[in-house]
Design a protein around this nucleic acid. Sequence first.
DNA 1: CTGAAAGCGCTTACAG
DNA 2: CTGAAAGCGCTTACAG
Lengths: 334, 334
Amino acid sequence: MVTIKDVARKAGVSTSTVSRTLSGRIPVDPHTREKVLAAVRELNYQPNELAKGLKEGKTKSMGLIMPNICNPVFPLVSRGVEDTARKHGYTLIICNTDEDPIREMESIQKLRKQWVDGIILAASGRENSHIRELKDSGLPVVLLIRRMEDEVDAVLIDNNASACQAVSYLLETGHRRIAIVNGDRRLPLYRERYRGYIQALKKAGIAPDPGLVLEVTDEDSCYNAVYTFLRSSSDVDAIFAANDLRALEAMRAAKDAGYRIPEDISIMGFDNLQFSPFLDPPLTTVDQPLYQMGQTAADRLLALIEGTASPEPEVRIMKTQLVIRESVKDRTVI
Amino acid sequence: MVTIKDVARKAGVSTSTVSRTLSGRIPVDPHTREKVLAAVRELNYQPNELAKGLKEGKTKSMGLIMPNICNPVFPLVSRGVEDTARKHGYTLIICNTDEDPIREMESIQKLRKQWVDGIILAASGRENSHIRELKDSGLPVVLLIRRMEDEVDAVLIDNNASACQAVSYLLETGHRRIAIVNGDRRLPLYRERYRGYIQALKKAGIAPDPGLVLEVTDEDSCYNAVYTFLRSSSDVDAIFAANDLRALEAMRAAKDAGYRIPEDISIMGFDNLQFSPFLDPPLTTVDQPLYQMGQTAADRLLALIEGTASPEPEVRIMKTQLVIRESVKDRTVI
DNA sequence: CTGAAAGCGCTTACAG
DNA sequence: CTGAAAGCGCTTACAG
C-alpha cells in the first residue's frame, strides 16, 4: 500500500504539504502543488479513509437498517439511498433485521462501532427504546417507512389516508362486502392501513364485519388463508390486500377458488411493484414513491451529517397515488 | 465517546491490559480481568473498529458490487451474503453499477479506500481488466454470477446447460417453433443462455430460425417487443424467456395478442422468483439457488480473508433445477 | 507557504 | 502477568 509518506518522499516535501494539497482547502504554492500531484499520479496514491476517519471522526459511510431486502419494497428504497449516498461520496452498509428488535439493536451497535456517519432506520417497529437511545447519542438518524412522533426525522407515507382512499375507491365502484388481507398487526404500518380500511367503511355508512378481516403474517401462507376464506364465504365482492405481494397471492387463490377477476371479485393492492402492471388482470393498486423515499431520506441524512440543515426534526409525508388498472370492476355501471 | 483510556483509568490498569483482556488471546490475571470487564460494562465501552482496523489492516467489512439491487435476483443473493457476513461479525457494503464498467471501477476504488477486507463482484461483465487488477492487488475477491477462466474464485450456475435443459423440455413436450426472448447479448450470462437454446435445438435436429430470436435489453420494453412479434408471426408454439421478469411480460403480451397460455403458446422462464408460482398460469421455469449462491460466495470470501482455505482459485458451479408448473403444455399427449 | 510535532484510538513487540 | 513506547496513516494547530 502506498502511503502519504511515500508521496511526500517522492515529491520532496513533508506529509503535511501533501495532505494540504489534497485537501484543497488550504493554500499551497502552485509549484509544490504540481510536484505533489505528479507524485500522487505516479504512485497511484489512494488516501486511507480509515486513517482519515480516525482523525476526523467520520468515515463517509452510512447505514441502512431494514427488515428484509427481499421484501420487494426495499430494493427500490435502498437503491434510492445508495444512489444519493454515492453521489456525495458516501458508501452504504445494509443490515437485515427481520423485524427483530434484538437484531435492530445489534445492527445499530455494529454500525456505531464502525463509525458510520449516520443511520437510516426502516424499522416497522414494535420497539422504540433503542431508537430514542440512538437519537440521544447524537448520531444523525432518519426513520424511513415509520415515524416516532415528531421527535426524530422521518420520511414515510400516510398509510391511513392512502388505505382509506383505496377502499373508498372500492366503495365508489359499488363494492359492499370488502375483505381485507392485512399483515402483522403488531406493526404500525399494517395497523394504519387497517385503520384506513375501517375509516372508509364507516364514512360510507357500512358497519365493519370482523368476518371479513384476514391477518396474514409473513410466515403464513397468504394463498392458503385466502383460498380457505373464499371457499367458505360466498358474498365477498372485493379484497383489499395490504400489499401487492399479498394481492398477487390473493388473486391466485381467488382464481383457484373459482372466482373470475374482476367479474366475480375485485382485487386492490398496495405498493405498485414492478410486476403489478403485468399481472392478469393488471393490478389496481396504490403507488408508493419508494425510490424517492430512499433519496429523500438519504438527502436529509446527508444534510444532518454535514450540518447544512437545521437539526429541527422534520417529518416528510410523501404522496401516494391510486393507480387504476383492471383488477377492480366498476359495479355501478349496468 | 468512551475510549480505551477511560476504561483503563476506571479499572486502574494500562490500556495495554484492557486491550489484552478484550482480545482474549493473551493471558491476563483473572482478578485484573474482572476489574477491566466491570469497567467495560459500567462505561458501556465500544471499541472503535476504525482504530483497530488502522492498526490491524482490516475492518471486518466486505463489499458486494452488483448491477442493480432492483434486478430481482439480487435481493436474495445479497441477503445470503449479508446473513453469513453478519454471522461472522462482518458488515456488508453494497454498490450498484448498472453494468457500467466505469462505475464498477469506481466502486472497487471506493471500497479499497475504505479498506474492506474483501469484495464479492457480481459483474455480468463486458470488461475484465479491472477484475484482473483487483485480483492482482491481493485483496480477496470472489466473482458471483460470472467467472473469469479459472484465475479467480467464482460461484455461479451453468447457464448454458440449464438453458439447454429448459429448451429440451420444451422440445420433449412437443414444441417445434420455440422463440427466445433474450437479454443483452453483450453480457456473458445471456450469451450462454442463448447458446444453450441453440444447442438444444441442434441436438433435436432443428435448424435455429433467426426470426425467432428477440433480444431485449433492460431499457427496452419487453412487453412491446413480444407483442409486436406475436402479432406478426403466427406459428410460434413456445417462448423461452431468459429470465422470469421477461417471462412475466411475455405472458402479458401473449395474452393481449390473443393467445391462451399454455393452450396456444407455452412460456418457459428462468430464475424462479418469489412471484412465479402465483402467475396465471403458474410459471414453469429454472430454479436458481440464489440465496445459497450468496452464502457460498460469502463463505468463500471469508475463508480467503481469514486464511482458513487454500488460496487456490475455486470455481463453484451451483445446481439448477427445472420447476414444472403450468405454463408449458405437453403437446405430445392427444 | 511549509515543516515538525502531536494526536485520533487502538494493538503489539519489548522490557521487566 | 503488566506497563511504557512505538506505530498504523492521516490531519491540523503551532511555529516559523
